[in-house]
Amino acid sequence: TTTLTYTDEEEARKAAEELKRRGITFTYTKRGGTWEIRIK
């Protein structure tokens, strides 16, 4: 499992869109002031 952490929502959203485009499965979690993208 790879976890990407972002403090900028815009960056996190761009990363999530890129992963979706590649067909990669991930979970997206907001934790306080950070956003976590966990790639399975």
Rank of each mutant, 00 (worst) to 15 (best):
1 T>W: 15
2 T>V: 14
2 T>P: 06
2 T>F: 11
3 T>G: 03
3 T>L: 14
3 T>K: 07
4 L>G: 02
4 L>S: 03
5 T>N: 05
6 Y>R: 00
6 Y>D: 00
7 T>R: 05
9 E>I: 04
9 E>L: 05
9 E>G: 07
9 E>H: 06
9 E>F: 07
10 E>M: 13
10 E>T: 14
10 E>R: 13
10 E>Q: 13
11 E>H: 07
11 E>Q: 10
11 E>M: 09
11 E>G: 05
11 E>I: 05
11 E>D: 10
12 A>R: 01
12 A>E: 00
12 A>F: 15
13 R>Q: 12
13 R>G: 04
13 R>A: 06
13 R>M: 13
13 R>P: 00
14 K>L: 10
14 K>N: 09
14 K>R: 12
15 A>R: 04
15 A>T: 09
15 A>I: 08
15 A>V: 14
15 A>W: 05
15 A>F: 10
15 A>N: 03
16 A>V: 12
16 A>P: 00
16 A>T: 05
16 A>M: 15
16 A>H: 02
16 A>K: 05
16 A>G: 05
17 E>N: 08
17 E>Q: 11
17 E>P: 00
18 E>D: 12
18 E>Y: 11
20 K>E: 10
20 K>P: 00
21 R>V: 07
22 R>Q: 11
23 G>L: 02
23 G>I: 01
23 G>D: 03
23 G>R: 03
24 I>T: 03
24 I>N: 02
24 I>Q: 03
24 I>S: 02
25 T>K: 14
25 T>F: 12
25 T>Y: 11
26 F>R: 00
26 F>I: 03
28 Y>P: 02
28 Y>W: 12
29 T>I: 13
29 T>V: 11
29 T>C: 12
30 K>F: 12
30 K>A: 09
30 K>G: 04
31 R>Q: 13
31 R>D: 09
31 R>P: 02
31 R>K: 14
32 G>E: 12
32 G>C: 10
32 G>F: 05
33 G>M: 10
33 G>D: 15
34 T>P: 02
35 W>N: 01
35 W>T: 03
35 W>E: 01
36 E>C: 04
36 E>Y: 14
37 I>S: 00
37 I>C: 00
38 R>Q: 14
39 I>D: 00
39 I>W: 04
39 I>P: 02
39 I>R: 01
40 K>I: 15
40 K>W: 15
